[in-house]
Structure formats: structure tokens, C-alpha cells
Write a protein that binds this DNA or RNA. Structure first.
Lengths: 230, 230
DNA sequence: TATTGACAAAGAATGTACGATCTGAAAACT
DNA sequence: AGTTTTCAGATCGTACATTCTTTGTCAATA
């Protein structure tokens, strides 16, 4: 039923609390991994992390277990945890999965979208265009609103959760990366095309549009990752 | 609620050593959740679980964190862990995702399959037919071999991991459920159709076949779950 | 002399115990 | 009756013990 948002949402309003409150030692570890601040396959020693985080070992252990469950670290018995590499392949894999899932979610949305929904999508899109990528965080929030409007009511909560998680990862990776001008115009164009298909009650067209959207987004992130290499 | 996890699994095919070491307390908890031996949204108290498992609280805490990462339990700060409900919707959700992913994996396999691969598939299929669902565990292993042959070499490790996890969940749920005769014949037929499409180098046909296979499997599990209700 | 093997010691992960802190609800009070 | 207080129960954090892995040294042999 409504397992609504029992899942934590690190994205929106973080920071500020920061400090060593330990509330986010999981997030700090996750961020370090995603952003590549710890090398791939590097060993994660609990004692070392604990002293760095300013806590004892137990919270670190539990954070590592959670990350293990999410697939970010790989643990072998009596041999500790290692960082799962977050490389271009990882991004490609995630995006390929999303290329399969998001069109399905979108196709369903076309069937249940009301006039109010379309109006709301156009309103958000207008805001996005007005902002014009000036503020990375605001843009991300608007983009999230845009897609959330389509997916949030879907009955397949598991698929939506997967989408949320993948999106968080991709966003964390691409945070700080500048968006190229060509990608900017593509994003706007793809959103508009999507809205047009929804208006026209064209599920297949909408699915294709979102497929291109996801694929383009993934390609852009990978290019940025390659560029950072130097 | 009394003897939740004290039941020994007779056919547990784990390689000797695991036994009651730390990782198995994770498996026991996971099994209890998947099989519905703990009620949905029921609170999981670490001390209680620890005494039942015969260990101290720390291993339990870490197991819970891992389960949290995998989405089986929901944790809120200072308020502990609750069981995420594993119901028909959950199974349906997982299957719908697999209906999207597995055809993609299969489509790719058709492009790289060799004659040796086809021979191996046919050999396994012959074994399955010879066994004819006489031994649930053996059948499951053969079926796993069959699909693993197709997926294991895929470049998208993330998608394959997702498939493995989903398969484990579905298998854990359906373990002990008898397979209806109609489902049995469908399984054999779908496998053969799949092999035929691979031989004929027909990716789309193979994708459709595996799609039906997954969908039929999911429907069968859900029907069995409903039947158990009474 | 160089290589290999055993063995001991350091390092790290896992398990146990206990104290601190928070939550939830019943009991006491105005 | 509604509000506050109190207290048991549970979670979370710290410290320590145990067990396993890894490393480094030294001796024996070719």
C-alpha cells in the first residue's frame, strides 16, 4: 500500500546540520564513495573511519552494512569492506536500467494524466526555462518535481523506489559538474516533447522521448566524468 | 511468533561452514520477513532478536542495517526497525521490473550466443525435463543454471545483480509452494520456445518468450500466495 | 646466496557487555 | 478532564575481548 516516503530523502535540504552529529555518517561515507574521494576497491577500515568521523566503531560498522545492502561496498567475511568502484560502467549500467524502467512508468502516466497534471508539468517546465540552469540546486529540485509528478502516483512502488535511488546516485555524481550548453537545450527540448506527447495521448511517443532523455543524461554524465580525469 | 526462526531448513544448500556465523543471522531474518513469519509493519526489537538468535545485539543491529539497505526493513531514528510488508503487490512489482529487464538481457545474449551455448542450454533443458519437477531444490538449481548461462556474461553487472536479488526473493517466497501442472507445462514450453528463438537468431522473439516466462511465473506465485491465505 | 617454509607478532574484523539517551505511555497531580 | 511527571523499555554509543588475517622475521635447505 502506501509505504509512502519511509525512505529517507537525503537530496533536498541537507548540510547545515552537518557537524559530527553522526546522523549522517552513512551519508558522508556514501558521498565519499560516489564522488570518488576514496579510490575504487580501497579497503575501508572501521577503526580508521571511526576516528576520522569522531565516533566509535559501531556506527561506522552499521553504516557500512547499510551501504553493503545498497551495493556501494563489498564485504567479505573477516576481511572487511572494500569500495565498489563508481566508474563510467556503473553509470552506464544504472542508466541502461532506467532506460528500461522510466519509459514504462511514463507510458502508464500518459494513461492517467489529467488536464491539471499537464498544466502543472507546463508550469514547472516554465520555471525551469525561466531559471535557465542558473542555480544547480534549484534546477535539480524543479527537475525532480517534474519527474516526480509523473512517477509518484504509479502503483509499482518498488520501481519508483529504484528510480529514486538511481536518481540520487546520478545526481550525487554529477553534482558540481557543469551542464554543457548542448545538453541544456536538449533537456528543455526533451521535456517539451514529452509534454506534447502526453497532451496528444501518445504513450509510445512519450516513452521514446523519456528514453532519449535518460540516455542523453547518462551520456552527458559519463562525458563529464571522463573530462574530470585530467 | 514464538518459534519464528528456530525451524531448521532441511535442504539448506549452504556450504558447510556458514552454519550459524554472522551472515546467517541476516539470512534468517530475511527469510522470516520474506516468508511472512513476522507480520507486516511489526516492530523488530534487537534485544529480543538477539536472544532468539543466541547472539549479542551487535550482529543483529548490523543485519538489520543491511536489510534496511536492501529495503526489507524500515528504520526510523531512535525508534527501531519495522518489517516492510511482503505481499502480492511486492511480488507483482518485482516481476514487472523483471519483465522489463530480462528481455533486454536475453536480447543481448542472442547476439553473442555460440553453438556451445545452445548445446548447453539444451542439455540443461533435457535434465529439467527428465527431472520433471520431482525435486523442488534440484529443479530450482537447474532453472538457475539455465538462466545464469544467458545472463552471467552480460556486461551490465548491476542489472544482473538486480536479477539475482529478485530471483532469490521470488524463490524464497515460492519455496514450499507446489507448482501447478499447467504451470509446469508452460515452463517447459517457454524454455523450448526460447531455445528455438536463440537458434533462429531471433532476438525479439526470444525477448517476448522470456517476457511471457517471467510474467507467467509471477502470476503463478501470486495465485499460490492467495491460495495460502485460506 | 637465494628461496622457501614455519612461526610469531601486529593489525583488523567480529562478538560481548554495559552505560547513556531517547521514546511512549501509564500514573499522579492540579 | 487535561496536563505534567515518572519510569520502564528500547535504541544508540563507547569500551573491551576474542578471533581471524596479514605481515615480517628467522632459520633450514638446495
Amino acid at each position: 500500500m502506501n509505504t509512502i516516503s519511509t525512505i529517507r530523502q537525503p537530496g533536498s535540504e541537507h548540510d547545515v546540520l552537518t557537524e559530527d552529529t553522526g546522523s549522517s555518517i552513512y551519508e558522508r561515507l556514501r558521498d565519499d564513495i560516489i564522488h570518488g574521494r576514496v579510490k575504487a576497491n580501497e579497503r575501508l577500515k572501521v577503526a580508521e573511519l571511526a576516528s576520522r568521523m569522531g565516533t566509535s566503531t559501531n556506527p561506522v560498522r552499521e553504516a557500512l552494512q547499510q551501504l553493503r545492502g545498497e551495493g556501494f561496498v563489498i564485504m567479505t567475511p573477516n576481511r572487511g569492506a572494500r569500495v565498489r568502484p563508481i566508474d563510467e560502467e556503473f553509470v552506464r549500467d544504472i542508466c541502461e536500467i532506467e532506460v528500461l524502467i522510466e519509459p514504462a512508468l511514463t507510458r502508464w502516466f500518459v494513461g492517467i494524466a489529467t488536464k491539471a497534471d499537464v498544466d502543472e508539468l507546463e508550469r514547472i517546465q516554465a520555471e525551469i526555462e525561466a531559471l535557465n540552469f542558473a542555480d544547480e540546486m534549484k534546477h535539480s529540485n524543479l527537475d525532480l518535481q517534474f519527474h516526480r509528478l509523473m512517477y509518484d502516483r504509479h502503483y509499482n512502488r518498488h520501481a519508483v523506489d529504484l528510480w529514486v535511488r538511481h536518481r540520487q546516485i546520478l545526481w550525487a555524481i554529477s553534482r558540481g559538474f557543469p551542464t554543457s550548453l548542448s545538453r541544456q537545450s536538449n533537456v528543455l527540448e526533451e521535456h517539451c516533447e514529452l509534454i506534447a506527447c502526453i497532451k496528444a495521448q501518445d504513450p509510445e511517443g512519450a516513452a521514446r522521448a523519456i528514453g532519449r532523455h535518460v540516455e542523453g543524461s547518462g551520456r552527458h554524465i559519463i562525458e563529464r566524468m571522463r573530462a574530470r580525469r585530467f
